[in-house]
Design a protein around this nucleic acid. Structure first.
Lengths: 344, 344
DNA sequence: CTGAAAGCGCTTACAG
DNA sequence: CTGAAAGCGCTTACAG
């Protein structure tokens, strides 16, 4: 490379020249607000930079500093409002720490996830937040194989990193306990596959509760459901065959929505004939009728906690910790006739 | 800086040394799959790289190439499924062109948007996709002030860039035409502020249609609504005061959802007493009961088109073009009693 | 097919 | 408070 590139606008050298200072001084003014530089000199540099419309090259800066002030965030996707809320919270929290978020989507593929990690590491992110896919099983690389600090969100096989979790089992336990307190003794649990950690653990919580009661209870597992449409069809089929359960617990509001539609189309009244309950509390859930009772999962909070943990690690390599959060029961009219009105 | 940094894993120099070749050759093997290198030499480099767990430094690479194979994507947020779908589509399309997406969120602030542009330019993205906020008014910088190619998505004041648009006015026109064909003559349009371009134009389309009919029609604008809750309260108030309109057109499914809840709580039957229709077609909309008739906006398609336009510009500075897409009417049971069953 | 060397645009000890 | 210069880790004309 023997000749100067002209692309990319003015560099700090042009700014220095225009201000009549060395590039070292120009750099100090531009990059370190508190570095002692004579006020008048500083102003000249600032003026020159503005004049030339100077935008510093973060690539060069990152290269020499071995630090980019960025964190990589890996999620399966953002169509799912659960991850969308998580990502927005991460972005805000990161920004408040002076960090820029680099978001990457895996589409739920573990292979893609590993590619993405390399991609992000090659861009020299200062840290990584990896959000679990629904059924991540292949462990990723451990701390020794990765050159950046990592914080995990959600159940996943990677051991040895700090991790932020919501107690899904407890949430399932409490949801069932609530339905039980309403008098329900026959349950259906709508779920996807046992490999989907969160959903599976919610189901485990249900079973744990039912195992602890000293009264006869029935619970059917209806699995293999992936979206609203699956849930709709399976519940419609149950209704056609004669639904004997009085409570449907859905592993996510998405399944609950499909179930509610199927029940409505079959002429079954909710909650007087059947109660329905979900997990997540999507914005939608409070505005459908009947409004959906649900266990609100703290997606945004998980995101925030993960950033805080990561920033902690960046400042000083900290202990491997597990941060445990909890779901909150939001009671609405799909389970309780006392809650039949109001906007949410 | 007098001493070597040890951070960041092995560099290409270590790989070259381990393979017994020059860094030039190592670089060629790692970065240019088609560059003529002796097969055996190539293999030695590849082996050494794997052995050392070499992850190339994208910062250094970008610095020397003046090219990062990244595009910056600026959106207000991703909680809104409209933008979430757009961003996912952009990410996939970009990846298929070998580009990585850098996503940044403005929270709807024009000031943040401009900061973000600088941030992204400083990271030397190869191009930028700027998705309009609901009421972006302050024009951003034009092509002459920006050193990267830009493609816009959605109505916004920036002139001089290629732009991908959906014809909101036509969508509003067609929605109204459809409701009219069902016999409705008295309409309410639920919207936010006149400054929200998309919503405003949908309303303009409604008015345009009504202006063209030779029969008496009434249309009320109900504005200042921002979410489901606002729509709920306003429609609830209308119901309490005696609703005289027979058709409610909501500028977004979110408003429609609030309206449906208010109508349900007021005991007003949809669609037999009042028809409700929205825009966007969120996944939810097909599963609520009554299922929501809506104008499906091609968010994903807009994203894909924007990437294609941007890639075109990258390859060869192209013409300033406007790509116009269209909404699709999805008829469901909230307007038509013929459509009262089924999963979607 | 391969290598030596310049250079991308910054930051930062080091030396005033 | 300021500057000269080395160096971050790559890529790429140039010259074999």
């Amino acid at each position: 490379m023997r000749k100067k590139q002209s692309a990319g606008g003015p560099g700090i050298r042009e700014v220095a020249k225009a201000a009549g200072v060395s590039v070292a001084t120009a750099s100090r003014v531009m990059a370190k607000a508190d570095y002692p530089v004579a006020a008048e000199t500083r102003q000249r540099v600032l003026d020159a930079a503005r004049e030339l419309n100077f935008v510093p090259n973060a690539l060069a800066r990152g290269l020499v500093r071995s630090k980019t002030d960025t964190i990589g965030v890996i999620v399966p996707g953002i169509i799912n409002p659960y991850y969308a809320a998580m990502v927005e919270a991460i972005d805000r929290e990161a920004r408040s720490h002076g960090l820029t978020t680099l978001l990457a989507l895996t589409d739920g593929s573990e292979a893609r996830r590993e590619e993405i990690i390399d991609e992000l590491v090659s861009r020299r992110v200062d840290g990584l937040i990896v959000c679990a896919g629904a059924d991540d099983h292949r462990p990723g690389r451990g701390p020794e194989a990765l050159s950046v600090p990592v914080v995990l969100i959600g159940e996943q096989p990677n051991l040895g990193f700090p991790i932020v979790l919501t107690d899904n089992q407890k949430a399932g336990f409490e949801a069932t306990q609530y339905l039980w307190s309403l008098g329900h003794r026959h349950f259906v649990y709508l779920t996807s596959l046992a490999s989907w950690h969160d959903f599976h653990q919610r189901g485990q919580g249900m079973m744990a509760f039912l195992k602890g009661v000293h009264e006869k209870a029935e619970a059917e597992i209806c699995d293999g459901l992936f979206g609203e449409a699956d849930a709709y069809q399976r519940v419609a089929a149950m209704c056609a065959a004669g639904l004997s359960a009085t409570a449907i617990l859905a592993s996510t509001d998405r399944h609950a929505l499909g179930a509610l539609a199927a029940l409505a189309d079959a002429g079954i009244k909710v909650p007087s004939q059947v109660s329905v309950m979900g997990f997540d509390d999507y914005i939608t859930s409070g505005f459908i009728r009947p409004a959906l009772t649900t266990m609100q999962m703290p997606a945004a909070d998980m995101g925030r906690q993960a950033v805080k943990a990561l920033v902690g690690h960046l400042d000083a390599p900290a202990q491997i910790e597990t941060i445990q959060l909890h779901a909150v029961l939001i009671e609405r009219s799909s389970t309780s006739i006392a809650q039949n009105r109001g906007p949410a």
